[in-house]
Amino acid sequence: MRIWLDSFSKTCVPRSGILLMSLVHVVLSTVSNETAVTCKRWPNVEVTSGSTWTERCRRCRCKSDGQTECVQPKCPLAYHPYQEDRCIKWSPDSCCCEKLVCRLNGRTYNIGDKFPLNEDDPCMLCTCKADPGVTKCEKMECFAVGCVNPAFMAGRCCHLCPTGLNCRLPPLDWPVNGKVDTTEPVPFNTTRIIFSEANPRYAWSCTCKTPGSDAECSRQARLSHMRFWHYGHP
């Protein structure tokens, strides 16, 4: 067997033994790198196990199991680094945030406020929350409104009823050719008397019971003292 002389240690080691030791070193190094434990600091920074750091009055360390452990003073709202950009009032000792807000598109909102994510899309509504991360936003769903003349208003997602809840006046039949004096919607919970001057003997009584639908109408004989106007009563 050939013997290789190590000029540094002056020790005779078999050449095959040197190769085996080198391979073991490479394997151990690879395993060590693969099993290295790290923790994540806010917002996305990795630190190795055993590392310690300070976040305002909170002291943190990376445990051997990859979990972060922090010790901090008691605050009504537990401190977190995300507050640095959203807190507008700190406690006298600068440890606790006393007023947290949300900021979007140059505007400031209080916790619980709802606001559009984008002025061009009022249907995407956001809620300011006291949690880290992105403010929660949801697409609003528009439902049928209780009127027959809905209108769109700038800055609003869904159509509104500009004149309140009402019903549609349905087509009305007359014994003799006549013309209805009005086609205006009937306000909710209101009865309107509809008549035609061409048919003085008859009138229609129309009541709005279900907003957003047709009014319920019934024909009736017209009283002799009835004047030529329509009226409503609750």
Score class of each variant (00 low, 15 high):
57 C>M: 03
58 R>L: 09
59 R>M: 07
59 R>N: 08
60 C>S: 03
60 C>G: 02
61 R>W: 09
61 R>Y: 11
61 R>C: 05
62 C>Y: 11
62 C>H: 10
62 C>Q: 08
62 C>R: 08
63 K>G: 10
63 K>M: 15
64 S>C: 06
65 D>I: 05
65 D>N: 15
67 Q>S: 14
68 T>L: 12
68 T>R: 13
68 T>A: 11
69 E>Q: 13
69 E>V: 07
70 C>E: 04
70 C>D: 06
70 C>W: 03
70 C>T: 04
73 P>M: 12
75 C>R: 03
75 C>M: 07
75 C>Y: 00
75 C>A: 02
75 C>P: 04
76 P>G: 11
76 P>D: 14
77 L>P: 03
77 L>R: 12
77 L>S: 09
77 L>W: 09
78 A>R: 08
78 A>E: 15
78 A>Q: 15
79 Y>H: 04
79 Y>D: 02
80 H>F: 10
81 P>A: 04
81 P>G: 08
81 P>N: 03
81 P>H: 04
81 P>F: 05
82 Y>M: 11
82 Y>P: 03
82 Y>D: 08
83 Q>C: 09
83 Q>W: 12
84 E>Q: 12
84 E>F: 08
84 E>T: 13
84 E>M: 14
84 E>N: 10
85 D>Q: 14
85 D>C: 07
85 D>P: 02
86 R>C: 09
86 R>E: 07
87 C>F: 07
87 C>L: 06
88 I>N: 12
88 I>W: 04
88 I>T: 14
90 W>T: 10
90 W>Y: 03
91 S>C: 15
91 S>G: 15
92 P>F: 10
92 P>R: 13
92 P>N: 13
93 D>W: 09
93 D>L: 06
94 S>M: 10
95 C>E: 01
96 C>K: 01
96 C>D: 00
96 C>V: 01
97 C>K: 00
98 E>T: 14
98 E>D: 15
99 K>D: 12
100 L>K: 01
101 V>G: 00
101 V>D: 02
102 C>Q: 04
102 C>L: 08
102 C>M: 05
103 R>F: 10
104 L>G: 04
105 N>R: 13
106 G>F: 04
107 R>A: 14
108 T>E: 02
108 T>N: 01
108 T>A: 00
108 T>R: 04
